[in-house]
């Protein structure tokens, strides 16, 4: 696959002196979905705004589809669709007009068939003649996506597209994103919601204080950094661990009714077999066993904490 977006040493320092981006470098391949995770003020929106031309970079370079965003901005921007974080729409405008306007703004000739297809895909066709102010919050978000898709971009930026929307709509949005990926659109998504990244991204980038801490395949990241816990429910409670189990890192929980064992899934030996044997030898009878995989959220919190 070819590189669709290449960011090299991108930096942005605002007039106030605040360094929002510190030498950020990132390559994104065509057709992939990458989720950028980061706390408030991490630089996610600044990164997107700079790539899209809304904010002027202080240093570094960006190419989109091989076109520099400053010296060759027209072809670069034609490839980009942007769905901003804020719901920014003309309240008195009709849905179809505002979407058609976006297409024209990006230099594309009128194409009613494409606009209809886009609106139908986003379940907005029935509302095409409604004024924006008449729409629900979820519909407005979809209008923003329709505007961003109106000129058939090859790379789509979704800046926190599901912020403040209900679970049902969020899942609908994920389906839309998956559909776009199937059409070959490269998607860069920023989000606060870890489960969003977990559900739809191919790769995850973690950004904090204007720096990219890591970019990795989601599954590899979870495998590399993922820890699992095993909760062992006991038939009878214990007040202290038998001496033979003392060095295994077990924790007593629920007033002695459970033991918690944390292990590394990437390790050669997880120690589960010997632990169960040792519990049996110590005369401890088990009632149940549950295992739990660490989520991206745990990994994210750990990384941001370490990067602080």
């Amino acid at each position: 696959m070819s590189v669709m977006l290449s960011v090299r040493d991108l930096s942005k320092t605002y007039g106030s002196g605040h360094e929002a981006l510190k030498s950020v470098s990132l390559d994104i391949e065509e057709g992939e979905i990458i989720a950028l995770l980061g706390p408030n003020g991490a630089g996610k929106t600044t990164l997107i705004s700079t790539i899209c031309g809304i904010t002027t970079p202080s240093g570094g370079s960006v190419t989109v589809g091989g076109h520099d965003i400053i010296t060759d901005y027209r072809p670069a921007r034609r490839l980009i669709g942007l769905v901003p974080q804020e719901v920014s729409l003309e309240p008195f405008e009709k849905v179809i007009n505002t979407v058609s306007f976006s297409r024209g703004l990006f230099g594309k000739p009128r194409d009613d068939a494409h606009i209809e297809r886009t609106l139908r895909q986003l379940s907005l066709w029935d509302k095409r003649n409604a004024q924006i102010k008449e729409l629900s919050g979820g519909m407005k978000r979809r209008v923003l996506i329709a505007k961003a898709l109106s000129h058939e971009p090859r790379i789509l930026f979704l800046d926190e597209p599901t912020a403040g929307v209900d679970v049902e709509l969020r899942k609908g949005m994920w389906e839309t994103v998956s559909g776009l990926k199937a059409d070959g659109v490269t998607i860069i998504l920023t989000t606060h919601y870890i489960e969003e990244a977990e559900a739809i991204a191919d790769r995850v980038g973690i950004i904090s204080k204007g720096q990219i801490l890591l970019v990795e395949e989601k599954s590899a990241l979870m495998k590399r950094m993922g820890k699992k816990t095993m909760r062992i429910d006991l038939q009878s409670p214990i007040s202290a661990l038998p001496e033979a189990l003392g060095d295994r890192g077990l924790e007593i929980e629920d007033d002695g009714h459970s033991l918690l064992y944390t292990y590394d899934t990437a390790a050669t030996r997880t120690g589960i077999t010997t632990l169960l044997q040792a519990l049996s030898d110590a005369g401890i009878t088990l009632r149940d066993i549950h295992t739990n995989q660490n989520s991206l959220e745990d990994i994210f919190v750990e990384l941001v904490k370490d990067g602080a």
Binding site: C52, G53, P75, P84, S88, L89, E90, P91, F106
Partner: peptide, 17 residues
């Protein structure tokens, strides 16, 4: 001013114009 006020100026700034 209106696009600035309601935030739709983002579209103008990110368009190939």
């Amino acid at each position: 001013y209106f696009p600035k006020f309601i935030g739709t100026i983002y579209e103008l700034l990110s368009a190939p114009v």
